[in-house]
């Protein structure tokens, strides 16, 4: 992980410099947000190569559309939306038809926080990543990004009810996987 440097200027100043095509400022902005966006990309992508592609495409898109950012909202949130869109678009290009989820029986959720605390971010990401594509997307969008089912439906071009049912299944699978990982660790 690349360490974050102390930045002498604010994000808005950095954005202004980027808008005037300052390559140094652009690099600075990239270094500031690349680790977070890489983590995000990894949650939506199958592997790190795919995540790197998303990161590259995302930053190129961000720099070329930076003028669209009004400066009012959260810049990181704006960036995340772009990355999520790119990641999901890339996903739809590839098919994951051969993935059939094997659901484990539903388990009691009381033990879950303890299990999660014992896992690192990468391990949690791996657990999420091991889920089928549809579950993973809905889970990520709903639980981590905080999207509503309506927004998820529009984004993934699925019905709200489909999003809900996917989330229910994703939750079951997540719990099952977390418990399994706990068992394996013990």
């Amino acid at each position: 992980m690349s360490p974050l440097k102390p930045y002498s200027i604010s994000v808005l100043e950095l954005i202004e410099a980027c808008l005037s095509d300052d390559r140094t400022a652009q690099k600075e902005l990239f270094e500031l947000y690349a680790p977070t966006m890489m983590a995000l990309a990894l949650r939506y992508c199958r592997d790190s190569h795919e995540a790197e592609d998303v990161l590259q495409e995302g930053f190129v898109k961000i720099f070329s559309n930076l003028y669209q950012y009004s400066g009012k909202g959260n810049f990181e949130g704006w960036m995340k939306k772009i990355f999520i869109n790119i990641a999901l678009k890339n996903k739809t290009k590839k098919s994951y038809t051969n993935e059939i989820p094997g659901l484990d029986p539903y388990m009691e959720t009381s033990v879950m926080p303890t299990i999660i605390d014992s896992l690192s971010e990468d391990e949690i990401t791996q657990v999420i990543d091991s889920m089928p594509e549809g579950y993973k997307r809905v889970f990520n969008l709903y639980v981590i990004e905080g999207y509503s089912h309506k927004e998820i439906g529009e984004l993934l071009k699925i019905g709200e009810s489909t999003s809900r049912s996917q989330l229910v299944k994703a939750r079951k699978m997540m719990q099952s996987k977390l418990l399994n990982s706990q068992k394996l660790a013990v």
């Binding site: 983590a39 990894l42 999660i116 971010e121 981590i144």
Partner: peptide, 12 residues
């Protein structure tokens, strides 16, 4: 999970 992952960072 949200708390931990939303602030997560990864090497690039």
């Amino acid at each position: 999970i949200k708390q931990r992952l939303s602030s997560a960072e990864h090497a690039y």
